[in-house]
């Protein structure tokens, strides 16, 4: 019960902090002081109190897009175990629903982008759907591999099964899985090297350009949704990459928060030391990730 409440609180409150940590890390690398850690919270709260501007071209779908997207990601967040605690809802095959809820979110984000009639947003939408399409098989191959290791089709079991002992036993394949999932994590959340969320040139962006015309509360919801997506996929990643458990519930929650913060720092470091890939190389990297996960599966089979 308490775990459930903490789960909801984490889902509702933590996401913007991750973005804050990433920006702070990048600022540190650039030798700046950077915005305060809580800046994303201020941004979202401010946006919720601002008026909106709508394009004359847009229809109801433009307004519905951010809402459906956020609803889908929120629903997905109930399925993923945070830390070492089982998710609020768990059933056989929930991982399929999990992946498809992101598909639903993508459909609406991309459609809302096309609703503005701007070619920049069309470009962003096209890139988003294409790259996610290539990232999806990786996720499934990785989840099948983990399902085979853990003998279950529930995310809650699959993701709480890995332990340090398992890492020692099947290290190579776990390492490959972690690498593949990290690539998927960066691609799905539109981070460098796939997309640069802070560039000032619309032509080169993916996610940010899709939401260019949103404003006011809707944009606040979009920012929160993007951060939440990072949290949800990040939780999936850390469950495999840092499978440490202390045995005590509260300590586990603390460990979870620490691991998420570490992940945010890691993403910040990647963003500071890497450049964005050329667009034509992105599919190559995503296919490479699929091959990595397939390789992991092959090793588990042996």
């Amino acid at each position: 019960m308490i775990d459930g409440i903490i789960h909801c609180l984490v889902v509702l409150l933590l996401p913007p902090l991750l973005i804050g940590i990433i920006t702070k890390t990048k600022a540190a690398f650039a030798g700046r002081v950077g915005a305060p850690l809580l800046q994303p919270y201020y941004d979202i709260l401010k946006l919720l109190r601002k008026g909106s501007v709508f394009s004359t071209t847009t229809t109801w779908l433009f307004r519905a897009g951010p809402l459906v997207t956020l609803a889908a990601i929120l629903t997905a967040s109930l399925l993923v175990p945070l830390g070492r605690h089982p998710a609020l809802i768990s059933f056989d095959g929930d991982l399929i629903l999990f992946a498809y809820l992101f598909g639903l979110a993508r459909f609406f984000t991309a459609s809302a982008a096309l609703d503005t009639g701007s070619s920049f947003e069309g470009m962003g939408a096209a890139r988003e759907v294409t790259f996610s399409c290539l990232a999806e098989p990786t996720l499934f191959v990785a989840l099948i591999t983990l399902a085979r290791i853990s003998g279950s089709l529930r995310l809650s079991t699959i993701l709480t099964y890995p332990t340090p002992a398992l890492w020692r036993a099947t290290g190579a394949s776990m390492l490959l899985l972690v690498a593949a999932l990290f690539i998927v994590l960066l691609a799905e959340n539109c981070r460098i090297p796939f997309d640069d969320p802070t560039t000032h040139l619309e032509l080169t962006m993916i996610h940010e350009v899709m939401v260019l015309d949103h404003s006011g509360p809707a944009f606040g919801l979009i920012l929160y949704g993007a951060a939440l997506k990072l949290l949800v996929l990040g939780a999936l990643f850390t469950a495999i990459a840092l499978p440490v458990s202390t045995g005590s519930d509260l300590a586990d929650w603390g460990l979870f928060l620490a691991s998420m913060a570490a992940l945010a720092v890691a993403i910040g470091v990647v963003e500071s030391v890497m450049a964005r890939l050329r667009l034509v190389r992105i599919p190559q990297l995503l296919v490479g990730a699929t091959i990595l996960s397939a390789f992991a599966m092959l090793l588990v089979l042996r």
Binding site: L48, R49, K50, G51, S52, V53, F54, S55, T56, T57, T58, R63, L67, T116, G117, S118, L212, D213, G216, P217, A218, L221
Partner: peptide, 16 residues
Amino acid sequence: YRMRLHRLPRGTVPTW
């Protein structure tokens, strides 16, 4: 969202 929209000012312009 509806509630927020009704409370706050709203503008219409062509797509940027």
